[in-house]
Simulated scan of single mutants.
Amino acid sequence: MGELKKTPLFNVYPRYGGKIIDFAGWALPVQYQGIIVEHEAVRNAAGIFDVSHMGEVEIKGKDAFKFVQNLITNDASILEDNQALYTPMCYEHGGTVDDILVYKYADDYFYLVINAGNIDKDFKWMIDNKGNFDVSIENISPNICEFAIQGPKAQKILQKIVNVDLSDIKFFYCKRNVKVNNIDCMISRTGYTGEDGFEVFCSDKDGENIWVKLLEIGKEDGLIPVGLGCRDTLRFEVCLPLYGNELAEDISPLEAGIGFFVKLNKDKFIGKEALLKQKSKGLKRKLIGFEMKDRGIPRHGYKVQIEGQEIGYVTTGYKSPSLNKNIGLALIKAEYANLGKEIEIVIRNKSAKAEIIDKKFYKKNYKK
């Protein structure tokens, strides 16, 4: 693992039995006690994820708002101070550079959280599109430790070592200069699991201190460390996209079914013309949900076909721990994307029957 990048929490993984894998060039725990145990802990109690591999970029300056507004497909003009926004960021041709979180601290100060595998690419994209905007763009990722505490008991546990009332932080809002175990942090009520929870940002030097303390005080409420494996099953069940699966350079946000986050009525943003054209002409591909009718677990990359004709591929597939069903997401030709339609998934060179169902496999439990 010597050549892989390590987060500030790398040294605590062995203490909890973390099984390390290579994830986008990072040494990260895929699991501790097991994916199913960890998945159920987040759904029923709470789990804590190390997400320090994510990237953080600060945009400051007179034109910070204009720059961010041009960069993203969503509309930053609706943001209040200390509010967050989920948004795709697109290429001119409409494909996706990344999907990111945008925090507005002030009109001249934005904080962007980007995907781990895209940090260098995204940062270069921002620099290349700076143009005449009066902004500074700084990649502060190496200095930040970020972790998420997610689940129905997340607030109760975190509240024990925080100096503010967490119930005052609304969904997709953040609070800065919060003391967590007497350490200065930023806390946001966001996450990637479909459950209520928080993401905590602090200095890379302070993360271990908070992590260990939270697991100590949260034990009686069922808090356990959880890995990338259940992070994927949790986000998949509530149809939250993963870059490289449901979104990519050759997949637009419209094709991925997240058109709600593409505001085509905005004056201008990178990729707008291509996305307008795609929408007016009609989508050629759509993301669908499906449930297996025959035996077999669908996996990323498996072919989808109808009567032997290939019509697309699986973007994510699992045996859902919450539903105990073999389900998946697939990007297929739009003319076949109808609820109730029978399709075939090619599993180990054999065709297995599946049915197109609603993509929202599991109900989200966010605190509004």
Results as ranks from 00 to 15, higher is better:
Phe198Cys: 03
Glu146Met: 15
Asp232Pro: 07
Leu323His: 12
Leu223His: 04
Ala352Thr: 04
Gly151Gln: 02
Cys145Phe: 01
Leu101Pro: 00
Gly257Ala: 10
Ile258His: 01
Thr193Asn: 07
Ile119Val: 13
Lys319Ser: 06
Ser52Gly: 08
Lys66Trp: 08
Lys179Cys: 05
Met186Glu: 05
Gly257Val: 05
Val97Ile: 13
Ile183Thr: 06
Gly117Thr: 07
Phe171Trp: 14
Ile72Leu: 12
Glu216Phe: 11
Asn177Gln: 09
Glu342Arg: 02
Ala27Phe: 10
Tyr13Phe: 15
Lys266Gln: 13
Val164Asn: 02
Leu112Gly: 02
Asn163Pro: 06
Ile144Tyr: 01
Gly194Tyr: 06
Ile35Asn: 00
Lys179Phe: 14
Glu355Ile: 10
Ala116Asp: 09
Asp81Ile: 05
Gly61Val: 08
Thr7Val: 10
Lys219Gln: 09
Lys104Gln: 11
Ile100Met: 10
Gln69Asp: 15
Val30Asp: 03
Ile327Arg: 15
Leu247Lys: 04
Val57Thr: 05
Val57Arg: 06
Asp250Pro: 01
Asp250Gln: 10
Lys268Trp: 07
Cys90Tyr: 09
Ser320Met: 02
Ile36Trp: 09
Asp184His: 06
Arg189Lys: 13
Asn143Phe: 13
Val57Ser: 01
Met126Ser: 01
Lys130Met: 13
Ile270Cys: 06
Phe361Asn: 06
Gly197Asn: 02
Leu234Ala: 13
Asn74Ala: 12
Val57Asp: 05
Lys325Leu: 15
Leu166Gln: 08
Gln69Val: 07
Leu234Asn: 03
Asp221Trp: 10
Asn74Phe: 13
Thr316Leu: 06
Ile224Ala: 11
Ile297Ala: 13
Thr73Gln: 14
Lys363Tyr: 04
Ile251Ser: 01
Glu80Ile: 00
Gly17Asn: 12
Lys359Arg: 15
Trp26Asn: 09
Asn181His: 14
Glu80His: 10
Phe23Ser: 04
Tyr91Leu: 14
Asn265Arg: 07
Asn82Leu: 15
Tyr32Ser: 09
Val180Gly: 00
Asp81Ser: 09
Asn143Asp: 08
Lys286Glu: 14
Glu208Met: 05
Ile343Pro: 01
Ala256Asn: 05
Phe123Pro: 08
Ile144Leu: 02
Ile36Cys: 00
Phe172Lys: 11
Lys19Met: 10
Val346Glu: 06
Arg285Asn: 14
Lys219Asp: 11
Asn181Phe: 15
Val51Tyr: 07
Val68Lys: 04
Asp98Gln: 01
Val200Ser: 00
Ile36Asn: 06
Asp294Phe: 09
Phe261Gln: 04
Val162Asp: 10
Lys268Tyr: 09
Ser322Val: 13
Ile169Arg: 02
Arg15Ile: 14
Tyr366Pro: 06
Asp184Phe: 04
Ile183Cys: 03
Asp120Trp: 08
Tyr105Cys: 12
Gly296Ile: 12
Asp165Phe: 14
Ile169Asn: 00
